[in-house]
Amino acid sequence: MKTVSLTIDGKRVKAHEGEKVLWAALDNGIYVPNLCTLRDNSEPSAACRLCFVEVEGKKQPVPACTETIEQGMVVNTKGPGALRLARTALELLLASHPVDCAHCPSSGSCELQKIAAHLGVKLKTRRFRKLLRELLVDSSSPVFIYDPNKCVLCGRCVWVCRERLGIGVLGFAHRGFERVVTTFGDGPIAESKCRDCGECVVACPTGALTFKDKQGTVKSAHKERVETETTQ
């Protein structure tokens, strides 16, 4: 496969032809905030709108997950326009997220915390109204707890369950602000075809899906994934 060389944040990097900017950056140790991408998903979902970067010659910031690399491309992940969009997107997510890190088993491995630190955004945002939904927590599964209130709708769990594993227990329902990840017919997970494999929990970047009883397992699973992704 041909390789293409480009510059990201002043650093000359090489990546396979056809690769997206996001992976080219991550593979070369340059972090770009992201929530909704998974390496093995070939079609970028481009839903979280956090990975904006600036590309020389383009008027507007572009999402790194959909932008294909080109020879000689000059990418700036810290341009003011890109950071502005990423910060607004994160603050919007945080404004609709119950920021209760002290009592959240995912605290420490949560990607929202990591991205907030990277972008210099406070977890308790002041700019926007706090808009929470009061959805029921589903603890019916013997393996994990699903708290839809903490979900950022990145869709990783849906994709993993449906495409990678071919099970398809989880899916999206409703529109707009009411959009939610749920089971078919909105029933409890225990009554679905869930095989309790816990892959969705591993995929979840926040505290929406957490392992039961084994708080340690939760953290390590998250940490492991976050670490492999950033060091890859």
Binding site: A95, S96, F128, L131, L153, F172, G176, F177
Partner: peptide, 20 residues
């Protein structure tokens, strides 16, 4: 806001904030 599919952050949450 009602007709937004809810996929992306800006449209789902941004328009909701504006509406508020």
């Amino acid at each position: 806001q009602r007709e937004s599919c809810g996929k992306c952050t800006f449209c789902r949450l941004g328009t909701k904030q504006m509406l508020e």
